[in-house]
Amino acid sequence: MKISKENIKLFIPQREPFIMIDNLIEVSEDRFVTDFKVSFDNIFLERAVLREFALLENIAQSSAAGLGFLNKDLLGLPDGFIGGISNLVLYDLPRVNDCLHTVVTKLTQLGNMYLLKGESYVADKKLVECKLKLVGMARDSNE
């Protein structure tokens, strides 16, 4: 365990009710693994099924947490936003109480722009895969 659910807010800018990861389980330079239990009060639930939008946000926040952990010694952790999503394929959606495992692989980095691949699973079943472009953003420059 690298970052537990209790401390995840130190590493991602999102707050309730928009936090879509629990724990950051593994981190290496180019691979991050998170988990996320689909809670009954998740805002993206519809008839006990978690919508695809939450899966994409889960991949983005898994990426942000991994990058945040790797850069934790830098002062003033930047916020980030999704610059783009490509090659997205949806296979299935999780249900309430399912535990999602998400694996993010860093493909390339250009300055504060990261291209990552995200895949989410419940047990061994893959639900979604996509490529994600994340852009780090210094908050001051946008205010």
Binding site: P13, Q14, R15, E16, P17, F18, I19, I43, R51, F53, A54, L56, E57, A60, D79, F81, I82, I85, R139, E143
Partner: peptide
């Protein structure tokens, strides 16, 4: 809207995934 409470506090930004849901 409650989404903006968490994204982000004091600095509302429409999440990309919410823009996808709007299209949907």
């Amino acid at each position: 809207h409650i989404v903006y409470k968490g994204h982000f506090p004091g600095y509302p930004v429409t999440p990309g995934v919410i823009q996808l849901q709007m299209v949907h």
